[in-house]
Amino acid sequence: MPALPLTALRPPISTLVHHYEELVAHVRRGPVARWFDAGMAREVVHDVCAELIERPPAPPRTPLAFLRTVCTRRAIDRCRIEQRHAFWVEGQAAPPDATALPDESCDPARILEGRQRLALLADSIHALPPRCRDVFVMHRIHGLPQQDIAQHLGISLKTVEKHLALGTAACRRALDDTLRDLSPP
């Protein structure tokens, strides 16, 4: 089969073929120049060419400017992908050791036990009287200082301390009762 003349190709592809080396040079000196050598720049232009063949766009008014923009964007995309890959690879200190024991935190029984304790604590907190619950949540969950809680709720610092003690004791009792029920006789 004879080769098609350049004029028979669609405008972006014929422009790419005609200005191939110029587009490679454009990618090499573009915004991601420090990452690209000639081989990488050629790969970017080749990728653009393959994309144009697979999905030809509507003919642009200025094909060379269109191709420069597409090549630049493709080079940026490729650099971002390589940076993410390098970050991921560098983040892995060493491949996991096949003989190593699995992490205990991944044990399904431990995960279930943790979820059950968390649900128990949530139920215990929910069962507290409203003011006691507010003080407990503000201090233990949100980390607010006791003085700020007293000011916010308009109560004394001693009352805040009392509510914290009651809330902590209720949660501790609930956990102790459950652990006692679960432990073997």
Score class of each variant (00 low, 15 high):
179 L>S: 04
13 I>L: 11
110 R>K: 12
56 P>F: 01
33 A>F: 02
57 P>I: 10
136 F>W: 14
48 V>I: 06
94 A>S: 14
138 M>S: 12
11 P>S: 10
111 I>F: 13
103 D>Q: 09
85 H>N: 10
126 H>L: 10
53 I>S: 00
22 E>P: 03
123 D>I: 09
85 H>T: 07
144 L>T: 08
55 R>T: 13
2 P>S: 09
89 V>R: 15
180 R>L: 15
7 T>Y: 07
177 D>K: 11
67 L>P: 02
61 R>D: 08
123 D>R: 14
74 R>T: 15
166 L>E: 06
162 K>A: 13
148 D>F: 03
132 C>Q: 06
5 P>Q: 03
23 L>P: 04
109 A>D: 09
139 H>S: 12
63 P>R: 10
127 A>C: 06
179 L>W: 08
99 T>S: 15
91 G>N: 06
123 D>Y: 04
148 D>S: 11
28 R>W: 03
111 I>T: 13
125 I>Q: 09
49 C>W: 11
124 S>G: 14
97 D>T: 07
109 A>L: 15
30 G>H: 01
132 C>I: 00
79 C>Y: 02
138 M>V: 00
75 A>R: 05
56 P>Y: 03
88 W>P: 03
103 D>A: 15
142 H>Y: 13
41 A>K: 04
109 A>R: 15
153 L>V: 00
41 A>V: 04
174 A>F: 03
111 I>R: 13
48 V>P: 01
84 R>A: 11
5 P>H: 05
147 Q>T: 13
76 I>P: 13
5 P>C: 06
181 D>N: 11
146 Q>W: 02
177 D>E: 14
158 K>M: 05
51 E>S: 15
159 T>G: 08
127 A>V: 09
9 L>F: 12
34 R>S: 10
89 V>E: 15
57 P>K: 01
6 L>V: 01
145 P>Q: 08
171 C>K: 01
30 G>E: 00
36 F>W: 06
81 I>P: 02
144 L>N: 12
87 F>Y: 15
68 R>W: 06
19 H>G: 07
5 P>W: 02
169 A>L: 09
130 P>I: 12
67 L>R: 00
55 R>G: 07
140 R>F: 10
17 V>Y: 13
145 P>A: 12
147 Q>D: 10
117 R>I: 01
52 L>V: 08
74 R>Y: 05
181 D>V: 03
178 T>Y: 13
102 P>G: 11
5 P>N: 02
96 P>K: 10
1 M>I: 01
81 I>E: 08
19 H>V: 03
54 E>P: 08
108 P>M: 12
14 S>N: 05
138 M>D: 14
44 V>T: 07
11 P>M: 08
183 S>L: 11
97 D>H: 07
21 E>L: 07
172 R>T: 13
165 A>L: 05
33 A>W: 04
6 L>Q: 05
119 A>W: 00
97 D>M: 05
147 Q>L: 15
43 E>C: 02
139 H>Y: 03
121 L>N: 07
165 A>S: 06
